[in-house]
Simulated assay, not measured.
Amino acid sequence: MRRHFHQAAARRGFAVAPAQEAAVERLARLAAELARPAWTFPKPPRDLYVWGPVGRGKSWLVDTFYEGLPTERKRRLHFHDFFRRLHDGVTAPGARRDGQSAVDSALDELIGDSKVLVFDEFHAHDAGDAMLIARLFRTLLDRRITLVTTSNYPPAGLMPDPLYHHLFEPTIQLIEQRMDVLDVSGPVDFRRLAAPRSRDGGRRFATGLCLPPGGTAPADAGLALPSPAEATTVPAHLRELPARAVRGELVWLGFDALCETATAVSDYLALAERFCTLVLDGVPPLAEASADGRQRFANLVDVACDRDVRLVLIGADPLTALPDGPVLTRDLDRTASRLAMLGRPA
């Protein structure tokens, strides 16, 4: 597995960073443990919680680990997607059956016979979801399923709102007791570096654009301004969204329609399942957007990056003039890091 990590890095044109070496070693050891027959272990392997600031390669580390596991009994999900599916399963009619709780039934549907579960970018901000997340973690850790997760927060930093942090403290204690916590807080945000040439192809998300109002895209980008006749609606999760245009695998939406109305991560996931390119125009400085609009925009960028959807932003620099303050800038450091991957035409 160590060789697999170094070969995977070389294929993408870089080397494993010193700050990642301890995580590579621990993930390689976990892979070796998982390869052994179950009867040789009196207890299942320790679960892993990999955390660090944005852009330190956490997702690459766990995705490379996942790809290198020879077993087919594994699942990898982004936490947004995992939690969306869990929530839908818990609230679906008839979710309780055969004496199981709704959470157990939903997990059975999600995990199947998997023995390894990887989910990326675990976080807890919403007090309304805190109890379901707490139940989720306890259920996962009580099963003989190996859990590997990434986060931008150390366990003690989860649910940072002081009004609700105490609600999550039992889950934090459970994570610290039952999982090995790996810190990959190196000094470099790799997303802000010039991308090396990759031998296995690039990513659509990283080829997206940030354009000023009225800016012009390259002629081959297919981004001619929509005409009024192209206006239509597109189905999302449980609603129809107004679109300025739909052109094959491209959808063109307005910031107000997508981020300043009551949309949710499930809607962005539905769009990502249908479209390869998402154009968002009318993007304001996020300091001028509502608090919910800022959070929805951050969630949209997360989904686009994870699902490798090419994102084109037209409008103001969304991150300009953001004042300091944990409430305003919550999770926007991750958003800023991801937006740094997008091209900005001169």
Rank of each mutant, 00 (worst) to 15 (best):
A8T: 03
A9G: 02
G13I: 14
A15P: 15
A15N: 11
Q20G: 05
A22Y: 14
V24M: 13
R36S: 08
R36A: 15
A38F: 00
W39E: 13
D47I: 11
L48V: 14
L48T: 05
L48K: 05
W51K: 12
V54H: 14
V54Y: 10
G57W: 02
W60H: 06
L61T: 08
D63W: 14
T64E: 05
E67Q: 14
G68M: 06
G68K: 11
E72R: 14
K74R: 04
K74S: 07
F82Y: 06
L86S: 00
T91W: 11
D98A: 14
G99R: 09
Q100T: 15
A106S: 02
D108A: 11
D113R: 12
F119D: 03
A124C: 09
A130Q: 11
A130E: 09
M131Y: 07
A134Y: 06
L140H: 01
D142H: 09
D142G: 12
L147D: 00
L158C: 03
P162N: 05
D180V: 10
P187G: 13
F190W: 15
A194I: 14
P196D: 07
R203F: 07
R203P: 00
A206T: 10
P218D: 06
L225I: 08
E230D: 13
R244C: 13
G248R: 12
L253D: 05
G254W: 12
R274Y: 00
L280Q: 05
A287E: 13
R294D: 08
N299Q: 13
D302T: 11
D302M: 04
R307Y: 06
T320Y: 12
L322R: 06
D331T: 03
R334W: 11
A336W: 03
S337G: 09
L339G: 09
L339Y: 04
